[in-house]
Computed example of a mutant assay.
Amino acid sequence: MISRDQVETMIKAALPDAQVQIQDLTGGGDHYQATIISSQFEGKGLVQQHQLVYSALREAMSTEAIHALSLKTFTPQTWATLGQSL
C-alpha cells in the first residue's frame, strides 16, 4: 500500500508546479481520487493530462500499490473559472 502523502509527492516530482489534493476513497490506501491543477496541462487534452499523472505514478500502479485512481485534472485557468479552492 501507499500513503496519500506518497502519491502527492510522486505527482509533484513529475509536475513541480502542481497543486494536488489526494483522497483515500476506501481507507485502505489503494483506492484514491486525485485533483490536480498544473500549468503543464495547458494545451493538452484530458487523456494527455491523465497520461502525465499516470506516468508519475507508473511504478506504484504497476506494483499494484494503487489499485484504483480517479483523476480530476485542471489547468490553473480552468480551475480559476470554476471558482474553487483546494
Rank of each mutant, 00 (worst) to 15 (best):
K72E: 15
G83M: 11
D5F: 03
A18V: 05
G45N: 14
L57H: 02
S3A: 02
F74Q: 14
F41L: 05
K44P: 01
K12L: 01
W79Q: 11
T73P: 03
T78I: 08
F41N: 07
G27Q: 07
R58E: 12
I66E: 15
G43M: 11
E8M: 01
Q77I: 01
D24S: 03
S3E: 11
S85F: 08
G43Q: 11
K12V: 00
V20K: 15
A18W: 11
A80I: 07
V53I: 11
D30F: 02
V20W: 14
A34M: 10
L15G: 09
D5Q: 05
Q84I: 06
K72L: 04
L86N: 08
T9C: 13
T35P: 04
M10I: 03
A56W: 06
Q23I: 03
G83R: 12
V47T: 07
E8G: 02
T78H: 13
H31I: 02
K72C: 04
T9D: 13
T26D: 10
D24F: 05
G45Y: 15
R58W: 12
E59S: 05
F41S: 08
L52S: 08
T63K: 15
V47G: 02
P76S: 04
I11A: 01
S62V: 06
H50A: 01
Q77N: 09
L57P: 00
P16L: 03
V47P: 00
T26A: 02
I22M: 13
A13T: 11
L46F: 09
G45P: 01
A14Y: 13
P76V: 06
L57G: 01
S55N: 14
Y32F: 09
I11F: 07
A60C: 05
G29N: 01
A65Q: 14
S39A: 12
P16E: 11
A56S: 07
I2P: 01
T9P: 05
I66R: 12
T81F: 15
V20N: 13
A14T: 07
V53H: 08
D24R: 04
Q19W: 03
Y54I: 02
L15D: 13
S38M: 14
V7G: 02
I2D: 10
